[in-house]
Nucleic acid binder design. Structure first.
Lengths: 221, 221
DNA sequence: TAGTAAAGTTAAGCATACTTAAATTATTTA
DNA sequence: TAAATAATTTAAGTATGCTTAACTTTACTA
């Protein structure tokens, strides 16, 4: 069985894999989970013995289908809880991540299926992240671009925001950045990797951290 | 801090204290929690060191206000979740205990307060157990009698049912026992402590286990 | 290609929450 | 009231998931 800790490891491995390619290094994972490299080596052996990941000493970790299944299951629970908290209980979008992080591990499949139905089988969470269905398949395709790679002069709509930092989320709310918002890339400053954008006719300077946590799609107009 | 395990110990001590008097013995608690006596002695020392309980070797355990506060907090979360599952998600009353048992430990006060408000500050859970408010005070007084001590010939209404056994709950549904149901005590059989009751004009024999898990109040009519 | 820095692993140790087995205390009962 | 029995505690050991410190492997650089 997968403990809470193992579920968190598999979730992190799954998400980092999508960002960083096929195998992920132990130190990238250690940094993400805020534990030491020693803890990662230890856990990698356990997960490997259980068939959740492939682990070769000094060669990094690769998630296997058995591990991916658990990771997607936890992501489904996480994202459905986030949406429930915003939609049904009126939470701000910046306040749901930590709650969902706890709830995802003590939620049965039956319970999450019922909430999924209650919310009418939503396709995305409050931050635009896609929600897997019961079978583990995503209901929408994500074909967005990270803001740091967007082009000067073009118009975009906000499709997704990473939700791990609630202060960051609150700041986005403050400058009126929300899902589906129209924004224009005015300038990209190379010396600090910040980007000047126009939102509701007002120019804002967004730091490197910000532009690496916002995803956009070119708008039609 | 109180871990999940400690929260469960304190909840059990609190509930057993109400049933069995002031101090409870380690073996009663061991039986309730399905662990060995050794585990109880071990944990009793830890809880005592943290000021949650008073523990004297060979003299049993007494809950202190600091421990009671945690127990009531967990009970509040448990009962609000149970009601939410029945009212909002359409669960059967026999299927909510195990879900609530998991959710109660990963629910912040903020979250449970919001669900409490969403449910319009209910007074009792789906089994008739009173729900403590934010301050830890019960919203209703319980002045019911356990069915085993009810009198032959009298009419009662069902006020509360212990919810720990889902098969028992399902059986109650089957014979149409629900909260506020009118039932009449027809006979009490001393040789097996069962009770014959009349429900909707039909007589049923209720075993000793059953009559020790149902609470009644004499009806006015 | 040797030397060094960075990355990764192993070993030993700790806290939690259990277990079984042995020892101790309390309670019956004869 | 003393022996037998029941209840309880202590001791030693286990699994999980971490830590720090020491060591090994890999990658980089000169």
């Amino acid at each position: 069985m997968a403990t809470i800790s193992k579920e968190n490891y598999l979730k992190a491995i799954y998400l980092l894999t999508r960002e960083n390619g096929n195998r992920i290094s132990t130190s990238v994972l250690a940094n993400d989970l805020c534990v030491t490299n020693a803890a990662i080596s230890d856990m990698a052996n356990k997960l490997s013995k259980q068939g959740f990941v492939e682990y070769k000493k000094y060669k990094g970790i690769k998630i296997l289908s058995k591990g991916k299944k658990i990771a997607v299951d936890i992501l489904r629970k996480h994202r459905i809880w986030e949406l429930f908290l915003v939609e049904t209980l009126g939470y701000d979008w910046g306040d749901v991540h930590l709650e969902a992080e706890k709830l995802e591990h003590c939620t049965t499949n039956n319970l999450i299926d019922r909430i999924d139905e209650y919310l009418n089988f939503p396709a995305a969470d409050p931050h635009g992240a896609p929600i897997p269905n019961k079978e583990g398949n995503y209901r929408i395709q994500t074909d967005d671009t990270i803001m740091s790679e967007c082009e000067i002069g073009k118009n975009y709509t906000v499709t997704r925001v990473n939700d791990r930092n609630s202060d960051l989320m609150n700041y986005l709310s403050q400058i009126k950045i929300s899902l589906n918002k129209e924004i224009k890339i005015i300038d990209k400053l190379n010396f600090d990797n910040s980007i000047i954008v126009e939102i509701d006719g007002i120019n804002h300077s967004l730091s490197e951290i910000l532009v690496n946590n916002i995803y956009l799609k070119e708008s039609k107009k």
